[in-house]
Amino acid sequence: MSNVVETVKQVVEPILEEHSFYLFDVEFVKENKSWYLRVYIDKKGGITIDDCVLVSDELSEKLDAMDPDPIPQAYFLEVSSPGAERPLRNDEELQQAVGEYVHVSLYQNLNGQKTFEGTLQSVDDESLTLQNDQWGKQDTLEIPRQLIAKSRLAIQF
Results as ranks from 00 to 15, higher is better:
W35C: 00
E27M: 15
P68Y: 02
A84N: 06
P68D: 09
G45L: 11
Y40N: 00
L63T: 13
S81P: 00
N32H: 08
K44C: 09
V4M: 02
Y36Q: 09
M66F: 08
F21K: 04
S56Q: 03
K62S: 10
W35R: 04
I47V: 15
K33P: 01
S56E: 11
E27G: 11
D69P: 02
S81E: 06
P82A: 03
F24Y: 15
K62D: 07
R86T: 08
G46W: 11
E78A: 05
S60W: 12
C52P: 02
E17K: 14
M66W: 07
E18G: 13
S81W: 02
M66D: 05
A65W: 04
F28L: 10
F21Y: 15
V26K: 02
Y40H: 06
W35T: 01
C52Q: 03
K44E: 15
Y75V: 05
S34H: 13
V29P: 02
L16T: 01
A74R: 12
S20E: 14
Y75K: 03
V29S: 11
D42S: 09
R86K: 10
Y36E: 05
V39K: 00
S34T: 09
S80M: 10
T48G: 09
S2Y: 13
P14F: 06
V39D: 00
K43N: 10
L37F: 05
L16R: 03
N3C: 05
I47F: 00
P68N: 08
P14C: 04
I15Q: 09
K43Q: 13
R86L: 02
K30Y: 06
R38K: 14
E58Q: 11
K43H: 12
P87V: 09
A74M: 13
D67C: 11
M66P: 08
N3G: 14
V26Y: 04
P82R: 01
E61L: 14
P72H: 07
V39E: 00
C52D: 12
V53W: 11
R86C: 05
V8D: 00
K44F: 12
S56L: 02
V8N: 02
E18A: 12
N3D: 14
E85K: 01
W35V: 06
S34N: 13
F76E: 14
V39T: 05
V11L: 07
I49A: 08
D42I: 06
F21V: 04
F76S: 14
S2A: 08
V4D: 01
P70E: 06
Y40K: 13
F24L: 02
E31I: 13
V4T: 06
L77A: 06
Y75H: 03
W35E: 05
D69A: 04
K30R: 14
L37C: 03
L59V: 08
D67K: 13
D25G: 06
K43Y: 12
I15C: 03
D25W: 02
E78P: 02
S34Y: 06
E78L: 04
F24N: 13
V8K: 00
P70I: 05
R86G: 07
V5M: 04
